[in-house]
Design a protein around this nucleic acid. Sequence first.
DNA 1: GTCCTAAATTTTTTT
DNA 2: AATTTAGGAC
Length: 730
Amino acid sequence: MNISQEVSSAPHSQSMPNPLLDALNPEQRQAVEATQGPVLVLAGAGTGKTRVLTTRIAHILTSKLAWPGEILAVTFTNKAAREMAERVNQLSGGAQSLWMGTFHSIGARIIRRHAEKLGLTSSFTILDADDQIRLLKTLMGELHIDDKSMPPKLFSAIIQSWKDQGLTPVKVTSPQDLQQAGGQAIRVYRAYQERLKALNAVDFGDLILHMLTLFTVHQEVLEEYAKRFKYILVDEYQDTNVAQYLWLRLLASYHKNLCCVGDDDQSIYSWRGAEVGNILRFERDFPDAKVIRLECNYRSTPHILAAAGALIANNRGRLGKTLWTPIKEGDRLRLKSVWDEGEEARFVGEEVEDLQRAKINLKDMAILVRAGFQTRAFEERFLTMGIPYRVIGGLRFYERAEIRDAVAYLRIIASPDDSLAFERIINTPKRGIGQATMQQLHTTARSLNTSLYNATVHLLKSGEIKGKLASALNLFIGNCQRWRKQLESLTLSEVVDLVLEESGYRQMWQQEKTPEAAGRLENLKELSRAIGEFENINAFLEHVSLVTEAADANGNTDMISLMTLHAAKGLEFDVIFLPGWEEGLFPHQRALDESGNKGLEEERRLAYVGITRARRRLYISHAANRRIYNQWQSSIPSRFISEIPKDNIEQLPGGLAGTPRPSARNWKDEVAAILSGSHKREEPTLSRGTRIFHQKFGYGRIAAVSGDHLDIEFEKAGFKKVLADFVTLA
DNA sequence: GTCCTAAATTTTTTT
DNA sequence: AATTTAGGAC
């Protein structure tokens, strides 16, 4: 069916006023009405992509092209999914029965339905990063791999990237891959996947990978879903990885009504396996695909848009878009040069107060940083000034130790065979179960091919565990059984309170007299409150593993937001502050070191995302000195600043006007040294960027300084850590 | 097995 | 600086 047929069969869409479609510009409307066949919408920042997606869904529903249950809408964050559901509901209602969510939550849903086909049961658990590392560590021990030279994190990263590419262990065949980590990676991967199955667990990557396996091995399952989903919509398409792409292609193979919305200039997740190439591939894999460009930006002022456009023009290999805006006027960008991060925070704080006096709400302002640690200076400043703020994505509620412990108790109650949960809390609080006992439990569990819980029961019955140890374990097992029974008669909140009390967990923190113990007890209280909102324990556990953001507990919504640039994608604010535009931090040194020009271009896209978040006003600042690992380092302004045309930017007075003083390094340390009377003339020349010579490694440049330790990028030998004593100036 | 101290490590971005 | 890990004493 093409558009003209559809229009004639649905006369409302053109001849009569249609409030749904009339609010759109011609390109947006085209994207909404092209319901049949593959469509790629290249939507620049602020061009109304969410609006297109939601209107498209509403349009499909109101034209009765499909029932809600026949539409699949995939997003990248739960937040985006929630927002979309809300807006679809406003437009047409019935959004609750849509298949709408992140790739991962939809994966969990589908895999639970067909768990037995994958060798799992429907109550499988989803591992988080912590569980994953612990499991890998155990496996590495069993495989006799030294975790000093090859940390578990390395294997975690390699396995993750294989999963992102849709590679199960048998599909890892390329010579480079087989040689990863000296050939150990594939061994670990095989063992890891086997153990996951034995534990009835999956990790994040598996949520996609298992779906692929399910669809390719079980044709009838694929058929069921491919036929069901008449319309598939994908948000942030530029950030899909190969596995997700393959999955989408399978799902769309029957109806072929796949609509992907993305912006190659906003691809910022290549480190997570995202392939910008998926956009280019789209036109190749779907030769009849309609490509629609949205280039009219309704969000930002001309100066902001011009700055963003000029910056991103430095990237090669773009599909190319030119954004324009009907907005006529607006301020130029404001550039502030400051001495250090403290001054940067003071400056932002003062501007925020000025803006408040100008009647701009805090909730319309945001500070976007490159790396999480940068928020600290602002938090401290805002606390002293009394400016309410919220850190988005910072320390996550469900990642705190006390919450993870409490959740582990719930996991053991919900499914006793969850050995990872068992291991986490069997000795928390202390019950006298140490390494030796754990070893015994593990051995028994494996020889009986069962879980740690069952192994414990077995050893208690057979009398192989006696005395103090036996009574402690007996008490624990008995408690678990009782708690499980109480799930039937008590509410979830009551069970949580009971478990925390009777296990002695709460008491453990009460006895601890550190200042943070009180906060932890608060968090536990919050947990028992939050769990009350769930139907059953499994629904709650799913929420814990897939939903990363904590709900806004208090009613105060007028707060300034602090977050990383990555977390800001898809959001917009009247006023944006972009601090820390310094070489080494932004673009981040590690991105440059590890991915060279590709890394630089991704950093530039990140800058582009940051700039285009702003509706009306944008501040960029850079500090001449920054403390990293508690070491003062001097830095020069980011190259990205010079890529913004002078006409669009205004240098604010004060600070250093962009010329850092070379001698700035360690000035605070020196002052401290003078005051303490132990000042020695320091070697002033060993700072970042200095060219040096080393007896063994040859010539190189200093990448970072931490005390006597230097990180040096050698011309021949690559990156090495060496002591300052061993290098001389080149 | 547990507790204490020393040493290593951290901070790029996350579903 | 702050937090996690390793090693050793008890």
